[in-house]
Amino acid sequence: MIFFTIFYEFFLTGLFMYGGGLASIPFLTQMAETTDWFTLEELMNMIAISESSPGPIAVNIATYAGFKAAGIPGSVIATISLLLPSVIITSIVARLLTHFRENALVNATLYGLRPASLGLIAAAGLSVLLYALFDIPLFQYSGILFDLFDIRSLILAIALFVLIKKFKTHPVLFLAGSAIIGIIIY
């Protein structure tokens, strides 16, 4: 039953993602590997669209991923399942609000969660970066080292990185620029 699987996957994502939008990506890269809902390439397209659309990024990605998995019902179920754990937990916290952040147990847990969440995002980022910049299947096929790198993508990535560091403007501008440059150079 695909709807139950969607519910389960996104409920788990909502329960275990820490630190905002991008924290959901490691869960989705794992879904790309373990389900036939979408490929890593499709996921990267979805992330690009979600970052360029208004609203919370993780909600956008979940809606999109659910749509890919099972159309409009899939997107609604994915979004609700993603939000359900955090709505329940936050409602409980809202009642106990005072001293939540001074709680030693909460702080101890967060001390472990922050680097872990970052480790997961870094790992997902690495697989995404490898996919975008290197043509590993072509290299395995031809064995020519030159085939491994996509020089255009590499130059674009370095240029984007420098620009992002220099001008701390909105990501949407960089995404829009990259789409236009992509049409020109590829």
């Binding site: 990267m44 397209n45 690009a48 995002i121 980022g125 975008a132 674009l156 992509g182």
Partner: peptide, 30 residues
């Protein structure tokens, strides 16, 4: 045309994620 635009977008997405990791580093790795 759309698939070429998405090739550019995918490069940008991976750089944005890399940048986010760098930005979060100081707060998480204490």
């Amino acid at each position: 045309i759309a698939s070429r635009a998405f090739m550019g977008l995918r490069v940008c997405v991976s750089v944005l994620i890399l940048n986010a990791v760098i930005n979060l580093w100081k707060n998480a790795i204490v």
